[in-house]
Design a protein around this nucleic acid. Structure first.
Length: 577
RNA sequence: CGGGGCGUAGCUCAGUCUGGUAGAGCGCACGGUUCGGGACCGUGAGGCCGGAGGUUCAAGUCCUCUCGCCCCGACCA
């Protein structure tokens, strides 16, 4: 392709509305442009990268035994009513009406439709398993879209679904998909890590996320450098955390009240009482779908709302309002405690039960209790792990300290189980002639997001440094001195040869000054650059260099095609095929 | 939705506090000089100052309402 015939428009300055580097660079390099919040054009250059990403995904999906199809973006409400998600899904689901006032939605995901497709055709265990995938535009009316392609509302996603007769079979496909995902990210040359994940409201049992490591990542990952354990912080378990230090105050038969004026925070109270924050029992009142619960956690730890939400099996969870706290506990916010607390479920983290002596709010203004003994002075209804893992906590599998990293979630795979197949009667007859719901898995991968993540990971202050497999063009041929006929002739000739040789090349034939062309070439980040100018051509040479660094080399024009081919082969050899 | 910020030329931004003829740089067009790392000189085109209402002799500037965009939090590929 010739630069003059395609549509590449670079920007000299960072766009005002971009914050993260991938968004800035994708906009500046002319890969994308914004239409509305979270809604973008993929311009020709950007589309080429996305298309290459898609092809890698296709190859690996086929290898994993999944067949490609495309489902509609717009889906009738009935399917969603059947699965129960029309009511469950929040405002993130873009609901629309047609001219007959019939309800539809713009698909945020396709479990309902795929389940319908499969239930129509598959009736027997002999026809299972089935695995299907699509690469298609999704719409999720995110509360807050941001960071360009990183979190758009409309975005390109590869979603795959598998259907099985039994859990072992799902297991096999799940593992195959996990492997396919690893290969996809490896082939793109991305640094990534699979981590255990929460299943969120899609439902299901086992789940992994694929995180591209980047400081700008929106997710926190807890990872163990010694044994390789990794989990999203939402899901992360820890080994036994350090016990609280010995109780510094006198032990007593009953809790005693202490006047603690205006002391609301754990730090204030601990210091005032002369105890360690770990001696406090933090009591938080949450409001879930239908009830209020009191959650007890050690003062030096934090509640993990995702774990709590999973335990309560609710869809919404928030901290109760101050008024509600007062109504339930009888005291103002900041002075809640479990002693004498009635009419509300009490959930305690195990670390609370382990305390020999503790301090806690007295459910009375400006008052705390000391010498509280869990089990003696209060009894929680449930003891369950609801704490947030933090760096330095012991790894749940090897007890070494875990560390925190940031990641961009580019893929997420789930074992769905029978949530959709049961709700939508997607069943098969087993060998005994008995009807069973199919067991499902689903496997998502953000296509545009992965491309953006690749840029987050591969750039410098001049621009993008594309990994070869995702580069919009693998090679750029820059023609300098386009006013000199002999240069034009040589460059045109070389361009024709490169095309003839099947090399993925963009010919910068613009009559721009050299500086402009060099800067554009750096900004866009083509991996292999060929510069044809009067200076080198006087000696019959053309320059070859790599965006990733290293020296420029002079290559006789007659050897150029072969040299480019060899260079590309060398780069490819570094990547898994 | 809560908290913060911003809407002025295609892009990046001044001008708003303190009301008085709409600005700069880049880009674009034309002419000239240049030509291996975002050239220079000259000329020119380009604006309902996000929108609506109000205050005022006079509003980009003050007030009210609205729409859009960005950032922090809860959601997620």
């Amino acid at each position: 392709m010739r630069w003059s015939r395609t549509f590449i428009h670079t920007l000299r300055q960072d766009p005002a509305d971009a914050e993260v580097v991938s968004h800035k660079l994708m906009t500046r390099a002319g890969l994308i442009s914004k239409v509305a919040a979270g809604i973008y054009n993929s311009l020709p250059l950007g589309w080429r990268s996305i298309d290459k990403m898609s092809d890698i995904i296709r190859e690996e999906m086929e290898k994993a035994g999944a067949a490609e199809l495309v489902m509609p973006a717009v889906q009738p409400a009935e399917y969603w009513e059947e699965s129960g998600r029309w009511a469950e899904y929040g405002p993130e689901l873009l609901r629309i009406k047609d001219r007959h006032d019939r309800e539809f939605c713009f698909g945020p995901t396709h479990e309902e439709i795929i389940t319908d497709i499969v239930r129509r055709s598959i009736k027997s265990y002999r026809q299972l398993p089935v695995a299907l995938y699509q690469i298609q535009t999704k719409f999720r009316d995110e509360i807050r879209p941001r960071f360009g392609l990183m979190r758009g509302r409309e975005f390109l996603m590869k979603d795959a679904y598998s259907f099985h007769a039994d859990a072992e079979d799902l297991d096999q496909t799940y593992r195959a998909m996990k492997k396919a995902y690893c290969r996809i990210f490896e082939r793109c040359g991305l640094g990534y890590t699979p981590v255990e994940a929460d299943t969120g409201n899609i439902g299901g049992s086992e789940s992994h996320e694929f995180m591209v490591l980047a400081d700008t990542g929106e997710d926190a990952i807890m990872a163990c450098p010694s044994c390789g354990y990794g989990a999203n912080v939402e899901k992360a378990q820890t080994g036994p955390v350090k016990a609280a230090p010995p109780w510094p105050l006198a032990e007593s038969e009953t809790p005693s009240s202490v006047h603690t004026p205006e002391m609301r925070s754990v730090e204030e109270v601990a210091e005032f009482l002369g105890v360690d924050p770990a001696h406090l029992i933090k009591t938080m009142i949450f409001e879930s779908d239908e009830e209020f619960v009191a959650v007890l956690i050690r003062g030096d730890l934090e509640v993990n709302e995702v774990k709590l939400k999973n335990h309560l099996d609710c869809t919404h969870l928030q901290l109760a309002s101050e008024a509600k706290i007062e109504q339930i506990t009888g005291g103002p916010q900041g002075f809640s405690g479990p002693v004498g607390l009635e009419g509300i479920r009490i959930i305690a983290d195990p670390t609370v039960i382990d305390l020999k002596q503790a301090a806690t709010g007295a459910n009375t203004l400006d008052t705390h209790l000391v010498g509280v003994v869990p089990g003696r002075d209060f009894r929680p209804d449930t003891v369950v792990d609801v704490r947030t893992a933090s760096a330095g906590d012991p790894c749940p599998s090897c007890s070494e300290p875990i560390i925190e990293k940031r990641g961009i979630e580019v893929g997420h795979i789930f074992k769905l189980g029978t949530k959709y197949s049961e709700a939508m009667r997607c069943t098969f007859l087993d060998a005994e002639g008995k009807e069973n719901p199919m067991i499902m898995g689903c496997y998502g991968l953000g296509v545009g997001r992965t491309v953006a993540a690749a840029i987050e990971q591969n750039h410098d202050d001049k621009g993008i440094i594309w990994p070869l497999p995702l580069a919009p063009y693998e090679v750029v041929l820059v023609m300098l001195n386009s006013d000199k006929p002999e240069v034009v002739e040589a460059a045109e000739g070389l361009y024709a040869q490169l095309k003839e040789a099947g090399i993925d090349v963009l010919f910068d034939d613009r009559p721009e000054r050299p500086g402009v062309k060099f800067n554009d070439m750096d900004l866009i980040g083509f991996p292999v650059r060929i510069v044809a100018g009067a200076r080198g051509l006087a000696e019959g040479n053309i320059e070859l260099s790599l965006r990733s660094g290293g020296e420029k080399t002079l290559v006789p024009i007659t050897d150029m095609v072969e040299t480019v081919r060899k260079t590309l082969d060398e780069i490819r050899a570094q990547l898994p095929q």
